[in-house]
Simulated assay, not measured.
Amino acid sequence: MIDQAMITSESAQGLLDDWMPRRELAGINGVSSDTLKRWETRRIGPPCIRIGRKVLYRRGAVRDWLLEQETRKTAGRGRAGR
Rank of each mutant, 00 (worst) to 15 (best):
K73H: 13
I49Y: 02
Q13H: 03
Q13V: 07
A80H: 09
E40P: 00
N29R: 15
P46E: 01
G78S: 03
V62A: 10
T8P: 00
D18A: 12
T71C: 07
R63Q: 15
Q13P: 00
M1W: 11
A26E: 04
Q4V: 12
M20H: 05
R63L: 15
P21K: 10
D64F: 06
T71R: 15
I2T: 12
P47I: 02
T71M: 11
G30D: 03
N29S: 15
R63H: 14
R77S: 11
P21C: 10
R50M: 05
L67A: 12
E68I: 02
E40A: 11
D17W: 00
L16S: 08
Y57P: 04
R82P: 08
E24L: 06
A61I: 00
G14D: 06
C48N: 09
A26R: 03
R79A: 14
K73W: 13
D17P: 00
R42P: 01
I2E: 12
D18M: 04
G45P: 03
I51C: 05
G45Y: 04
R72N: 09
Q69E: 09
I49S: 06
G14Y: 03
R77L: 09
L15R: 11
N29Y: 14
A61F: 07
D64V: 09
A5G: 10
D3V: 12
P46F: 05
E70K: 14
L15K: 05
R43E: 12
G76E: 09
M1N: 14
T74E: 12
I2G: 02
G52P: 04
G81N: 13
G81H: 15
I7W: 03
